[in-house]
Every structure is written in C-alpha cells, then in structure tokens.
Computed example of a mutant assay.
Amino acid sequence: MAKSKEIRVTINLECIDCEQNFRKKSQGISRYTTRKNRRNTPIRLELKKFCRYCGKHTIHREIKK
C-alpha cells in the first residue's frame, strides 16, 4: 500500500543547548511533541520553549523520528 500523505504530521522538538552540552553537565535532553502543517511549513520548525534541564527558554529544533 502507498503511504498516506497527511497534511498534519507529528514532529519532535529537541533543545539545541542540551544537545551541545550533553556530555558536560546536563542530566538529559529536553524534548517536546507537536504537530505542524506540511504544506505551510515545509522547512524544519524552530520554536522557543522552556528547557527544564537548562532552566531557561531555549530554541528547540525539529528532529527526525
């Protein structure tokens, strides 16, 4: 069967600061799950969200599943 071409897809957002400092001091990596419209935003999504490991608002970038 062919893969369905859903307009709205579920994506994961990951903190870019935790990703860079993962080996240094962080206990983990902050991740959020959200949905986006594939037609309106074909590029990777970047949102400013709160990271509980960094303790501040940081940029979270879309990652591959």
Rank of each mutant, 00 (worst) to 15 (best):
C54G: 01
K49F: 01
A2S: 10
I43R: 12
S26C: 15
K64V: 06
I7T: 12
K65G: 11
K24D: 07
G28E: 03
Y53F: 15
S26Q: 14
R38Q: 15
T58E: 15
S26T: 11
Y32L: 05
R23L: 04
I43N: 13
E14Y: 01
C54E: 13
K49Y: 02
N37H: 07
C18G: 02
R39G: 05
R38S: 14
N12C: 03
R31H: 08
I7G: 00
E62R: 11
V9C: 03
R38L: 14
T10P: 10
A2W: 03
C18K: 02
C15L: 05
C18T: 03
E62I: 05
H57N: 14
N40A: 10
K24M: 07
I16W: 00
T34F: 03
C15H: 05
E46P: 00
C54K: 10
I29H: 05
K64F: 01
H57L: 09
S26I: 12
N37G: 01
S30M: 12
K64I: 03
T58D: 10
K49W: 01
K3E: 09
Y32P: 01
C54M: 11
N37L: 11
A2F: 07
L13R: 03
A2V: 14
C51Y: 03
I11Q: 06
R52T: 07
